[in-house]
């Protein structure tokens, strides 16, 4: 845990360092607007990456992210517009989106198929079913309670709701991943499934749970994205899959599983988001933006490996 903790600390240091350094990209930086945007856009990424992080920790990779996000967003909007109270609509949206993770979990834990193929297939089926059920019609307007979380009207004890949510997600995610029996057993499974089994860990059940919990996390991101945009296209989740994998690894987790902690992932989510804001501010042509983005992900990865020490 020492190395993962070291990497997380380094990531947080980089985030804090980059805030004043943003001046390089724009004379208007650093600013409150910059920090607010980073927190808001970083929140979605941090939540998606919690699910992806658990799956990667267990030794898998999850490609069903876009489908689960879209299901959560679509059905929350759908039920709210059918007149269901918002908490119930959100609950139903989460329940339906978690079905993707549930089925992933059942298949992965009861076969030895590679997780990325299983999640690709289940995600594809989920997206196709959504297209069929919705008949191509996009998600509907968000219930007003969700819109209020992001439109700048609401504040919680003087802080933006997205900041409060980010802190809550950080604490909850860290607790689940690092301080519960479930979380500890995921580390063990990621390190060595055989050893975990010998140690008496319920490998199958824990593996199943990983994918289910991940599906719920994606669905939650979908629900919040619905509120952010107060509406959603069916492909709303597509742009979050690859960044979710990137921040987990940049945040210090091993892509082959068994190491990492969620605090590092959240820091990486903020770092990558802030960098993308900086790159946008600099006004480079689109091609240059993409090259820079890729190069910076590589650089951050390199730094995190150096900072975290050898493994």
């Amino acid at each position: 845990m020492g190395t993962a903790g070291g990497q997380a600390a380094l990531m947080w240091a980089l985030v804090i360092l980059l805030v004043p350094l943003s001046r390089v990209f724009s004379s208007n930086f650093p600013s409150a607007a910059m920090v607010n945007s980073t927190i808001m856009l970083g929140l979605f990424l941090a939540i998606v990456a919690f699910g992806q992080g658990l799956v990667i920790l267990s030794g898998g990779i999850d490609l069903s992210v876009p489908a689960a996000i879209a299901l959560g967003a679509f059905f929350t909007g759908f039920f709210a517009n059918e007149g269901f109270p918002t908490p119930l609509a959100v609950g139903l949206g989460l329940l339906i989106s978690s079905l993707v993770g549930l089925i992933n979990g059942i298949i992965v834990c009861s076969t030895n198929f590679p997780p990325f193929i299983v999640t690709l297939a289940v995600g594809t089926i989920g997206a196709a079913l959504l297209l069929g059920v919705s008949q191509g019609q996009p998600g509907q307007n968000s219930p007003p309670e969700l819109v209020a979380l992001f439109n700048g009207e609401l504040n919680v004890l003087g802080a933006a709701p997205s900041l409060v949510m980010l802190i809550a997600v950080l604490m909850l995610g860290y607790l689940i991943q690092s301080r519960t029996t479930f979380g500890r057993s995921v580390y063990a499974i990621g390190n060595s499934m055989k050893a975990a089994r010998i140690a008496g860990i319920r490998v199958k059940f824990s593996t199943f749970l990983v994918y289910w919990v991940a599906g719920i996390a994606y669905g939650l991101a979908g629900v919040l994205l619905l509120g952010y945009g107060s509406g959603s296209d069916l492909n709303i989740g597509n742009s979050w899959l690859l960044p979710s994998i990137a921040v987990v690894v940049v945040g210090g987790s091993s892509i082959s599983g068994g190491t990492g902690n969620y605090s590092g992932t959240v820091a990486a989510a903020l770092l990558i988001t802030l960098l993308s804001i900086d790159i946008s501010a600099a006004g480079f042509p689109e091609g240059v933006k993409q090259i820079l983005y890729g190069a910076i992900v590589l650089l951050a990865l390199l730094l995190s490996k150096i900072g975290g020490g050898r493994r």
């Binding site: 724009s26 208007n28 607007a33 910059m34 945007s37 952010y228 742009s239 946008s280």
Partner: peptide, 26 residues
């Protein structure tokens, strides 16, 4: 002062505009 690609998508446009507005509040 700034160009971004929103991909004809409301959600992507909102995210990209949020980023660009942070840099160009004026």
């Amino acid at each position: 002062v700034n160009e971004f690609y929103g991909n004809w998508d409301s959600s992507v446009s909102q995210q990209e505009a949020t980023k660009a507005l942070a840099a160009h509040p004026g």
